[in-house]
C-alpha cells in the first residue's frame, strides 16, 4: 500500500484506484507458491485487485502468527510487505527517535496503528496517530527511525439521512 501512496502524486488527476475482492482461483501459481512457501500455516488468504493508472496490482491480506499482513504484487512479483507490529517491538534506538519526533509535534497522542513496511530490505515504519482535537496523522520513518514525511487524514462526517 505504501508503494501505491508514493506512486499517487505521479498519476494523472483523471485516474483513480479501484479495489475489488477476487477469488483465490484467479491468483497465479507463482503468487500462490510464494504464499504457501513463505506462510505455510496460513489457512485463508484474502485477495483484492487494485487498479492504479491502468496498472493492475494484486493485494493479499492474511493473519500469520498473530500479525496482520498485507502483501502487494505487480506482474506476479512481490513489491511490498506490510505487517502490523506493536510499537514496543520497534528496536529501542529507532523507537526513541520516533517517540522524540512525535512528542515534539504533539503534547498528547495515541498510536492506533504501527506497521513495518518491507521486513527485510529498505524497512520503513508507518505509524498512525489519533491526536486530541487535531485528528488523525500518518507518519513515515525509515529503518533508522528518521522522519520521512507525515500526512494528515481528513475526517469526513458520518453519512446519515433525515
Amino acid at each position: 500500500m505504501k508503494y501505491l501512496l508514493f506512486l499517487l502524486p505521479f498519476i494523472s488527476s483523471f485516474s483513480f484506484s479501484q479495489e475489488k475482492r477476487i477469488s483465490a482461483k484467479m491468483i497465479s501459481s507463482k503468487i500462490n507458491s510464494h504464499l504457501l512457501s513463505s506462510y505455510p500455516t496460513v489457512k485463508k488468504f484474502h485477495f483484492y485487485t487494485e487498479i492504479i493508472a491502468q496498472v493492475p496490482y494484486i493485494e493479499c491480506e492474511f493473519k500469520y502468527e498473530n500479525d496482520h499482513y498485507s502483501l502487494l504484487f505487480l506482474n506476479d512479483s512481490l513489491i511490498e510487505v506490510e505487517v502490523e507490529v506493536p510499537f514496543s517491538e520497534i528496536p529501542e534506538i529507532e523507537r526513541l527517535k520516533i517517540s522524540n519526533r512525535l512528542n515534539n509535534d504533539f503534547e498528547s497522542y495515541k498510536i492506533i496503528e504501527c506497521q513495518k513496511v518491507n521486513q527485510f530490505s529498505n524497512v520503513k515504519y508507518e505509524i498512525t496517530l489519533q491526536v486530541k482535537r487535531k485528528g488523525k496523522f500518518e507518519y513515515y520513518f525509515n529503518s533508522l527511525g528518521e522522519f520521512i514525511e507525515r500526512e494528515e487524514e481528513t475526517e469526513i462526517p458520518i453519512q446519515t439521512q433525515f
Binding site: 483513480f16 484506484s17 479501484q18 479495489e19 475489488k20 475482492r21 483484492y48 453519512q159 446519515t160
Partner: peptide, 18 residues
C-alpha cells in the same frame, strides 16, 4: 434512535463506479 448499516458491495472499500 437510528441504527444504520452500510457496506461496499464490491471490495472492502467503496470506489468510483461501485
Amino acid at each position: 434512535y437510528q441504527l444504520c448499516y452500510n457496506r461496499p458491495l464490491q471490495g472492502k472499500s467503496l470506489d468510483v463506479n461501485e
